[in-house]
């Protein structure tokens, strides 16, 4: 059983068994266009909420991916290195970026749920 949360900088957070899986949203990848490169954090690196954790690049743009929570990375999605298109094709599935521990579960309540995020996207686009 997992629950999905969304940040204002267009990362999603899926929480299951005390581990958060982070990636960029379907909307974010559609805005970037064809993704050509993803720079992932090394494992066991600590992040505070809002730190730059990863970079995602299309041909003409580069964007930072921010840690939506405080914690330590436990795993990075190595398959994105060889096949960055996964982040376009299945952003909220096989195209995830990294997993991290949840050091402060209270931070989750500052994120949006799916419905609120959809409204947020509509308002800002």
């Amino acid at each position: 059983m997992s629950t999905t949360y969304y940040s204002r900088s267009h990362e999603y957070v899926k929480v299951a068994d005390g581990i958060a899986t982070i990636g960029i949203t379907t909307y974010a990848q559609s805005q970037l266009g064809d993704i050509v490169f993803v720079e992932l954090p090394e494992t066991r690196r600590g992040f505070k909420r809002g730190d730059e954790a990863a970079v995602v690049e299309s041909v003409k743009a580069a964007s930072e991916v921010y840690a939506p929570l405080t914690g330590e990375t436990t795993e990075a999605n190595e398959s994105l290195i060889d096949n960055p298109a996964l982040a376009n094709e299945d952003p909220e599935g096989d195209g995830w970026f990294f997993k991290m521990s949840l050091d402060n579960e209270g931070e989750l309540k500052d994120l949006m749920d799916a419905e609120t995020y959809q409204t947020f996207v509509k308002e800002t686009s």
Partner: peptide, 9 residues
Amino acid sequence: RLDETGAAR
């Protein structure tokens, strides 16, 4: 037109 995405990937 050239495939810039392929070139970068």
